[in-house]
Amino acid sequence: MTDRISAFRSLAKIAISLVAAVVIQGILAYRLRVFAFVDLPLILTIYYGFTLGRPVASVVIGTTIGLMQDSLSGVPLGTNGFVKTLLGYLAATAGSKFDVDLLVTRTIAIFLFTLGNGALVSILGLMTGAAPNTNLGSSVWTWLLSGTFNALLGLLMFGYHDRVKHAVS
């Protein structure tokens, strides 16, 4: 019974964090220009991929948060869903193969995942015709900038996670 309650609590926490990430991302990107380069849903996908240690859960989280992000953006439904699903799975796989507790690993991982996210979303946009004028060459700079911001914010989130983990243990 206690396990069920605990599991329900964890699930509720994840659900709230997903919704919050998408909503806050939408609002802050509107209010603060710099937040246009930040991708909170992506950071959260990577975060859960690294910390949960459950690939299935990471895939579900990626799918859900991607769809939610799509619904509030102008891209076809499934664009971010597809990419976040894939990245959620890759993050979970990387979490089981690499030592993601290391600061360097986390930084590089978030940076690379951001580049991958940007590239895949752009390619899907080109394929579906949603963004036919996308110039991949010029988008690289945006992805690099986004990767830097995401890495910085991601490190803060992971830092907070580590502190909570240590406090509990």
Binding site: T63, P76, G81, F82, L86, T128
Partner: peptide, 22 residues
């Protein structure tokens, strides 16, 4: 198996979603 199945289902779902929209 479950992860491959879940991943496949999710990716197919999104691909179909994109496809029907396109």
């Amino acid at each position: 198996k479950p992860i491959w199945i879940t991943l496949a289902i999710a990716l197919v779902f999104h691909t179909l979603l994109l496809s029907i929209q396109t």
